[in-house]
Design a protein around this nucleic acid. Structure first.
Length: 465
DNA sequence: TCCGCTGACACGTTTGAATTGA
DNA sequence: ATCAATTCAAACGTGTCAGCGG
């Protein structure tokens, strides 16, 4: 078992080995999520990932793609993603690094993207990787397409939630198991600031092939007038210059320089090694110089996840807690610590059974007999929908859903109604993943007890459900 | 003046309908 | 008539760039 401290110096290194599902893969509470393309994510992360946000909405790149295991094959699950502010600051790009530029703007309407396959049985989620390709980010606070609204020049990280529930109504009675991957944090921007990120995106995103050096966009470049050339560096200049002189003051030589931009390939192991050896990013620079490890928020705010959040469920209180990877005495920790072969970031949840999760005995039968043995799950019927999440979701025809701002990426013209739930006007207290991005993933579990009680509260620490 | 935002643009990928052939 | 393979165009995604506005 590898403790979190053991991992600290190795953030850029390979994730804990062997995340292959063990014999206890279906044991309750052993849900495991692994991030696809962790090397790519880390390559971006080391430089300082930026995500373009536009009014019509922009996809993420790299996009969020995860693998799941440990689900009950016949039980239905809902997968959600939301974006969490990394801290309470606004940033600016200055001299090749990010600097704090003041306090964060008030939190825009927070939205949760529901995977369009939701709800689906565990077997469905586990049979292949789950992609959130269609998730879009926008800076349009009046967006009516259900895209996730972010502020430019603010930092966020995606948070994945998996809920065992037959439908959206059941979500509120279910356990949220939440996963985050430190390397997926990013800065929302309306235009790329760091040319290295631009180059990485061009080299890896197939849609940006036309901007690669070997691309066929010579005509376009040739037609461009020289005017404005001095205002912003031309991409061709950037591409050429980066490999020559990327060692600005206070921004140490980036591993990115070693990248040869091979036709859409993921970073080669050599490149990843370079990243490991030279963990320099605009953030890293600040970490070193500012004494903080991840954000300007300061160390005193860093272990919010370590503290319990009091979810108002007196009868069945379940702490909202942060599991430090590898610290849990659970047997699965050893599994997680030996998963290097998969090359994926992952985290295995260890939550106790609650809510709609079938009891252990029934699950054992399930495992033996198979999905056919899974009887219908009787979940509490919908009673109180106040505070239903703002959610981007697959088309649903369930009565009562539309009126609660549940959006579908495939039915773009849902009306934007009143935002329900507590007013999303403030950031939550700054909360941080870990002390220095060393965990492979951060997991939280929520237990929502009495509906009437917790419907008065945001589901997530900052959210506006 | 600076800096962030926006929309038009060119280029490439994806997708699905239409067409063709076995 | 059916099905699979191929073709083609529209839709979509992407970064670039110039101009606008606070």
């Amino acid at each position: 078992m590898q403790s979190i401290r053991d991992l600290k110096p190795n953030f850029s290194g390979p994730p804990p080995s062997s995340m292959a599902a063990g014999p206890d893969a279906y044991l309750q509470g052993n849900i495991r999520m692994t991030l696809e393309d962790p090397e790519l994510w880390k390559t971006f992360h080391e430089i300082g990932t930026e995500m373009i946000i536009t009014k019509p909405g922009r996809r993420m790149f790299p996009h969020c793609k995860v693998n799941l295991s440990g689900l009950i094959p016949c039980a239905k699950y809902i997968l959600l993603v939301d974006m969490v502010p990394e801290d309470g600051f606004r940033y600016k790009w200055n001299k090749e690094k990010w600097e704090v530029a003041g306090k964060a703007e008030p939190q825009p309407p927070c939205r949760t993207y529901l995977h369009p396959d939701s709800p689906a049985p565990g077997s469905h989620w586990m049979k292949q990787s789950v992609s959130f390709l269609k998730l879009k980010l926008t800076n349009n606070t009046l967006d009516q397409h259900g895209h996730i609204i972010l502020h430019s020049m603010h930092r966020y990280h995606p948070r994945f939630h998996i809920v065992q529930a037959d439908d959206l109504f059941s979500v509120r009675w279910s356990v949220f198991q939440t996963f985050t991957f430190p390397e997926t944090s990013f800065t929302a921007v309306t235009a790329y600031q760091n040319t290295k990120i631009t180059k990485l995106k061009i080299n890896h995103n197939p849609f940006a092939k036309g901007f690669r050096d070997e691309g066929t966009n010579k005509k376009r470049r040739a037609n461009k007038s020289p005017a404005g050339a001095e205002k912003r560096p031309k991409m061709s200049d950037i591409l050429n210059r980066d490999s020559e002189e990327d060692s600005p003051p206070d921004f140490c030589q980036s591993s990115f320089d070693g990248y040869d931009g091979e036709e859409g390939d993921l970073p080669k192991s050599k490149e990843v090694d370079a990243v490991k050896d030279e963990r320099y990013s605009p953030w890293a620079a600040e970490r070193e110089h500012g004494g903080r490890t991840e954000s300007p928020a300061g160390a005193e705010t860093r272990d919010m996840y370590s503290s319990e959040q009091l979810v108002p469920t007196p009868a069945s209180y379940q702490p909202y807690r942060f599991h430090e990877y590898g610290k849990s005495p659970s047997p699965s920790s050893s599994i997680g610590s030996s998963n290097g072969g998969s090359g994926r970031s992952s985290f295995e949840s260890r939550v106790p059974d609650v809510a709609t999760v079938p009891d252990e005995s029934s699950k054992s039968r399930t495992h033996e007999i198979g999905p056919s043995a899974c009887g219908p799950q009787h979940l509490p019927g919908p009673q109180d929908y106040t505070g239903v999440l703002n959610m981007t979701m697959a088309q649903t025809s369930k009565p009562g859903v539309i009126g609660h701002h549940i959006y579908s990426p495939y039915s773009a013209e849902q009306p934007l109604g009143q935002w329900s739930g507590p007013a999303p006007t403030q950031y939550p207290p700054p909360h941080h993943l870990t002390t220095d991005y060393t965990t492979q993933a951060v997991h939280h579990s929520y237990h929502h007890g009495n509906v009437a009680e917790w419907s008065q509260y945001p589901l997530f620490p900052y959210s506006c459900w």
